[in-house]
């Protein structure tokens, strides 16, 4: 509602200016009073082999909004995105902060959208090697910037996207494209277990394979828990993601613990993750992990 009110105020100001200009011959027709919206098409290509991107949040805003900063601790909404892939609350999420529910409270945010399947038009995530897009139609002339964010589903707390990307310089027919890195939110230890990686989500079933419910009638999640408010990563800071170890990681020979204690400790740390990892070699990725294309349609 606030957003609509702001737009109305802008149009109102415009009308006053037009009335003042009317005697000078300006704003002579409907097109001038209601200039056509600027339409931007945002396309995200998932360039990983097998890291599913859940539905991508696309936020159009002006200066004064930044969803994250590398080297700083993640907000709760980025933690929820990175650990669980959620940008809006689910049915039984309880209280909390999500990327889109918080973004709309910021006066700099003009419009929020989710990526759509180009064929069905429904909100969709993106498989490795796939793409999704969404159009954003906004009043022309704003100092527009984009924030685009999604998570890497087969990681503990990996996410990708851009924030505060300037697009106001694009003229109709122009486009920009850039590769996008994966970040580690720094909010959850990279254990790679099926209990903590949301890609392995599963629900409790009885002996017949039927899902069971609790007293309130809700399904009982048994694996793939995403968001956990506990912060147990090495540093509570957003960094470039170093990649995943996976169960298929070759370890090489065991270093001599006496002659090479540091190499031995690193070997043991990697072996521990390899032994418990629910990921396989297809989940590996190198940077960058996505390509972002922003076209100004009109």
């Amino acid at each position: 509602m606030r957003k609509q009110a702001r737009q109305f105020k802008k149009v109102g100001t415009f009308l006053v200016v037009c009335l003042l200009l009317a005697s000078l011959g300006g704003c002579g027709n409907q097109d001038d009073i209601y200039p056509p919206n600027a339409v931007y098409r945002v396309t995200v290509a998932n360039l990983t082999f097998n890291q599913y991107f859940p539905t991508v949040a696309v936020i159009m805003h002006t200066g004064g909004y930044q969803a994250w900063e590398v080297g700083q601790p993640a907000s709760e909404e980025i933690e929820r995105l990175a650990e669980g892939g959620q940008v809006v609350p689910g049915a039984n999420s309880g209280a909390g902060k999500w990327l889109l529910t918080e973004a709309v409270k910021n006066p700099a945010v003009v419009l929020t959208r989710l990526t759509l399947d180009p064929y069905s038009g429904l909100a969709t995530g993106i498989l490795g090697g796939g793409r999704a897009q969404v159009d954003l139609s906004v009043p022309p002339g704003g100092d527009y910037r984009l924030t685009v964010a999604t998570s890497l589903t087969f990681t503990n707390d990996g996410f990708t996207g851009v924030t505060d990307l300037a697009i106001a310089q694009l003229q109709p027919g122009e486009s920009l494209s850039q590769y996008v890195n994966a970040y580690d939110a720094g909010t959850e230890a990279n254990t790679e277990t099926e209990m903590t990686v949301p890609g392995f989500v599963a629900f409790a079933a009885d002996a017949n394979g039927s899902l069971v419910t609790d007293a309130q009638g809700n399904y009982i999640q048994s694996k793939g828990f995403g968001y956990d408010p506990v912060r147990d990563d090495v540093n509570d800071l957003i960094t470039i993601h170093a990649g995943v170890v996976t169960a298929d990681q070759p370890l090489g020979d065991e270093p001599d613990p006496v002659a090479l204690p540091e190499a031995y400790a690193a070997y043991l740390a990697k072996k521990q993750i390899k032994d418990q990892s629910a990921l396989n070699e297809t989940h590996r990725f190198l940077q960058p992990v996505a390509k972002l294309i922003v076209e100004r349609i009109s």
């Binding site: 990983t48 082999f49 090697g129 298929d248 070759p250 396989n280 070699e281 960058p288 992990v289």
Partner: peptide
Amino acid sequence: KEASVLNPSITIHRGVLG
């Protein structure tokens, strides 16, 4: 494991396992 989830698109190479 790749055969069951073969991704036919050009992607950023996920690196060599070795």
